[in-house]
């Protein structure tokens, strides 16, 4: 347990102190959000209608594009081999790395989401549901990204192929994430139905990812 906590701290320190750290993901998020009003026009009613979808898609892309970073550096300096072969259970190591990545990538994005949501004219009642659903959904998205990253860990510049592999798996999270946010924002009849399914999908992803990723990394080492 202690060693896993040390690993968590190490991963987050490495992430925040190298390559722009959290700023990279936030910058990406911000820039893409700014592009949308230019693309679809500044009509606030239209933006309010599509804002939930836009924010979800960008969250998904931000996580996907950073997926390569989960294992690539560790493989390069050899620490991944040590962690998998000599450390605690490989599945636990991967779960820890996954959570570190989630905290490092998704938490900064969640922090600036309210500001961007208001700029996209999301109704104020939608802010809390948005954050809640993204908090849950992003963990599942990170888990699936881990699978993609581990499968192609030995391939350089694999980002595009990771997208090809992982994007189909993101569809359920996207569908239920958006509909859960919508249901909670506009207070439909059974507001928690989609949310429970979103939680279920996240839990399944968390369950599958460490095992699949551990196998893939062992095959790649």
């Amino acid at each position: 347990m202690k060693s896993l906590y040390a690993l968590l701290k190490r991963d987050m320190t490495l992430f925040f102190r190298s390559g722009g750290g959290a700023g990279q993901a936030i910058g990406f998020y911000l820039v893409v959000v700014i592009l949308f009003p230019f693309a679809v026009g500044p009509d606030l009613n239209l933006l309010a209608r599509i804002s939930i979808g836009i924010l979800w898609v960008i969250l998904l892309l931000a996580i996907l594009l950073s997926a390569e970073r989960i294992f690539a550096d560790d493989l390069e300096d050899g620490s991944l081999t040590l962690l998998i072969t000599a450390g605690p259970l490989p599945e636990l190591v991967i779960l820890t790395k996954l959570i570190a990545h989630w905290i490092a990538i998704a938490m900064p994005l969640l922090l600036i989401t309210p500001v961007l949501a208001i700029m996209l004219n999301l109704p104020l009642g939608g802010l809390m549901p948005m954050i809640l659903c993204m908090f849950i959904g992003s963990l599942g998205l990170c888990a699936l990204a881990t699978i993609g990253a581990s499968i192609l860990v030995a391939i350089r510049r694999a980002n595009q192929i990771i997208s090809l592999l992982i994007l189909p798996l993101y569809i359920p999270t996207l569908i239920f994430g958006v509909s859960a946010t919508n249901d909670l924002t506009f207070e439909v009849e059974k507001p928690y139905a989609s949310l429970t399914i979103l939680i279920a999908i996240t839990l399944i992803s968390l369950l599958v990812a460490p095992f699949a990723a551990a196998q893939a990394i062992k095959a790649n080492l």
């Binding site: 699978i147 499968i151 592999l165 189909p168 798996l169 569809i171 359920p172 569908i175 239920f176 999908i201 399944i204 599958v208 699949a212 196998q215 893939a216 095959a219 790649n220």
Partner: peptide, 23 residues
């Protein structure tokens, strides 16, 4: 080996994808 892992993940996920898209 890696293709097998991918297929296994796909087999778990395809029913979920199918059902969520149906819904």
């Amino acid at each position: 080996r890696i293709a097998t892992i991918l297929v296994a993940v796909g087999l778990v996920n395809i029913p979920i994808i199918k059902f969520s898209v149906d819904w």
